[in-house]
């Protein structure tokens, strides 16, 4: 659980070799990890070096051609495209999510729990339903345009749905809670006296924020950025539904390999490449945060 990293040093003090009972308690998690993380990844790894036959079945015939194809300029462009979208999403989520998380984290306990509940509520409905709801809000004859037209703020319906902007709206909407929650965790732990100390020492709100609050909530920011950026790169449903399927993201391309194109080995190679990319990003940022 990446967001827990901030807690690690505290736990380490009590570290001790788990006994048999400890391992037994641990077993379901290990089993789960093995069945749903390690095994599928291993299968994908093997597939990524295979070929497909006429029907699209995987043929075990070693080849690196899938990987050479990954680095074709078509897919590189899609990779950079996806990274751009994910980066924009992450930045907006951070800008929007930080103040929200901060507000919740500093609110009184009673209000805090209610606000947290509000952040969680969207998870109660299916992701697809929420996406369709956004589509009907943004559509040309939807309530947003209706309201703007009624208020005479615009003369003609805004063209939002099926544009890159709609994709970003959808991505931000979906991933915002994943930014808010870890930052909230950091903010909640933040000692109010430290903020007061900053004010006391002559720091205005801006300086106090940049010199004290941000550095002290960095673990939360870091976790939030990871939790938003990484899944956002691979997202495909939103690009299809809200982007009108025009902007292929790497997630769409991969999905296509397992669907229409029926080229599992190539899809696996794309997936493995992405996995490596994430691992590299993660290692790099971990080293950075260690150094800081």
């Amino acid at each position: 659980m990446t967001p827990g990293t901030g807690q690690l040093p505290e736990i380490q003090g009590a570290q001790r070799r788990p006994g048999l009972r400890g391992w037994l308690l641990f077993a379901p998690l290990m089993l789960w990890l093995f069945a749903f993380v390690i095994a599928p990844t291993a299968i994908m790894f093997v597939y990524s070096f295979c070929q497909r036959d006429e029907l699209g079945q995987v043929v075990f015939e070693f080849s690196l051609s899938n990987y050479t194809r990954v680095f074709d300029k078509t897919y590189l462009k899609i990779f950079t495209n996806s990274i751009q979208y994910a980066a924009i999403t992450t930045v907006i989520c951070l800008l929007v999510g930080y103040p929200v998380a901060y507000f919740i984290g500093r609110a009184s306990e009673q209000i805090r729990n209610k606000l947290l509940m509000l952040v969680m509520i969207p998870f109660w409905t299916s992701f697809l339903i929420r996406t369709y709801a956004w589509m009907s809000i943004l559509k040309a004859e939807g309530p947003l345009n209706g309201m703007l037209l009624y208020m005479q703020l615009i003369a003609a319906p805004l063209d939002i749905l099926y544009t890159p902007a709609a994709v970003v709206i959808g991505l931000v909407y979906s991933y915002l809670p994943f930014m808010i929650l870890p930052i909230y965790g950091s903010v909640e732990k933040l000692d109010n006296a430290l903020i007061e100390a900053a004010f006391d020492l002559g720091a205005g709100p801006v300086s106090a924020f940049s010199h004290v609050i941000v550095p002290l909530t960095r673990p939360g920011i870091f976790a939030g950025v990871l939790l938003v950026f990484i899944p956002a790169i691979g997202m495909f449903a939103i690009t299809d539904l809200m982007g009108g399927g025009r902007v292929p993201m790497i997630g769409n391309v991969i999905q296509n390999q397992f669907g229409q194109a029926r080229d599992w080995p190539f899809g696996a190679a794309l997936g493995m490449t992405m996995l490596l990319l994430f691992a590299a990003c993660f290692a790099l940022s971990m080293r950075k945060s260690d150094a800081a």
């Binding site: 497909r52 699209g56 194809r69 462009k77 890159p164 025009r246 229409q260 194109a261 080229d263």
Partner: peptide
Amino acid sequence: AASDLDKMVTDLKAAAN
């Protein structure tokens, strides 16, 4: 050929933006 076709259209879609 489904695979070639897919690559071509993906390429064109990516380039269209």
